[in-house]
Amino acid sequence: MVLNSLIKENYRIKHPYYRLRLWLEGLHSKDKIVIYQMGKVGSTTIWKSLQSLNLNIPIYHIHSLNHERIRKAIETDQANYRKLHFMYPETLHSEYLRSQLDRKNIVNPWSVITLVRDPIAKILSGFFQKLEGELLLGFDYRKKIKAEGDTKIVQEIIEGFYKERVENPSRIHPFEWFNFELKDHLNVDLFAASTLAGRNYYIDNTKLARVLWLKLESLNDSYQSAFKDFLGIQNFNLVQANVGLNKRYKNLYKIFLRNVNLPVDYLDNIYQTELVRHFYSKSEIEQFYQRWKSY
């Protein structure tokens, strides 16, 4: 009881304790399943679904293997720990796997699962997620909504989105993640693999990783066959988790989506890139255009 209390209250005890647990877990298996992808593309659902199977293979959920990003994530967790008493598992997993790479301690290629999603949907969802972060740290938009009304608050959020995303030429395309992460750290070049455009999933084999490429839009139609081919799992079922429209700000999020208007030149900058065309066919991209043009 005393140890549990110390672990819960003290970041400097909890952090090394969970690092040790990850290290011990890794000793018992040469294999690793790594859900390694951008944020807001369904990674938590895949992670929770695989965990529910009790596969006896370590399962990790990460968004980055970059040293600097991991360092900043650790600093953020530590700074917020006194208020939240929580550390993000993704941070711990990233730190552990990064140490395995640095030591060249990869016995068998990792089984890496990565998803893509309509980049505009990913951008909108990622921007809105910061409201959840503010809620955790004590700032609740619902109080402002009650005092000032939905319309005014949504307009403030939309103006913030325009300033941060639409009117900011320095913003990097979200799909550059694949170059900054998978290519830089696992030497997985997506253009060396077969295109995912017009397909639901694809399996690629490299020296450090065996990679399952999935599309969120067609996940419900393909996940059982994909995970059977990739991991030999029969009758795989998805456990829905971390869905934006089910969160505390779901009503505000719906209003935001109905009212945000995206200029065609902004849509062109996002959709008319080689990265997007590698993952999505012309007809799929056109469907994305029509979706966001209608708002």
Rank of each mutant, 00 (worst) to 15 (best):
A121I: 12
N205H: 15
Q287A: 11
S49D: 02
N220A: 11
K144D: 10
R19N: 15
Q290F: 11
V166L: 00
S52F: 11
K293E: 07
N168V: 00
K207D: 09
F256V: 01
D118M: 03
Y60S: 04
D150Y: 08
K207I: 14
I106S: 04
N10Y: 11
T91V: 10
E156T: 10
L196H: 00
R199N: 12
Q224D: 15
D265Y: 12
R71Y: 07
E95I: 08
Y36C: 05
E132F: 12
A197F: 02
P89T: 03
Y223E: 08
R210A: 06
I158M: 10
V243D: 04
T114C: 01
S52C: 08
L50G: 07
L65N: 00
K8V: 08
T151R: 15
L97E: 01
E68Q: 08
T273I: 00
Q129G: 09
V41H: 02
A193D: 10
K144S: 14
K14E: 13
Q51A: 09
L101V: 01
I33T: 05
S125C: 02
V166E: 03
K207G: 06
L20C: 14
D204F: 09
T76L: 14
I255D: 14
L55H: 08
L24Q: 08
E90T: 11
H173E: 05
E274I: 03
F227P: 06
L20R: 07
E75I: 04
Q78L: 08
E176A: 11
P16K: 05
Y201R: 05
V243Q: 13
L6A: 09
N220I: 11
G42Q: 03
D268H: 06
I157K: 06
S222K: 04
K122E: 13
N205Q: 06
L231M: 14
L84M: 06
S49R: 05
G39K: 10
L6G: 10
A197W: 01
L257V: 10
I233E: 08
R171Y: 10
K122N: 10
Q287W: 13
V211W: 00
Q287I: 09
N4D: 15
E134T: 07
E164Y: 03
F236K: 02
S283D: 13
A192L: 11
L216W: 08
L55C: 11
E167G: 11
L212R: 00
I233V: 05
E274P: 03
V154S: 14
N259S: 15
R69C: 02
A73F: 02
L196S: 00
S281W: 04
R12E: 15
R277Q: 03
D221I: 06
F127A: 07
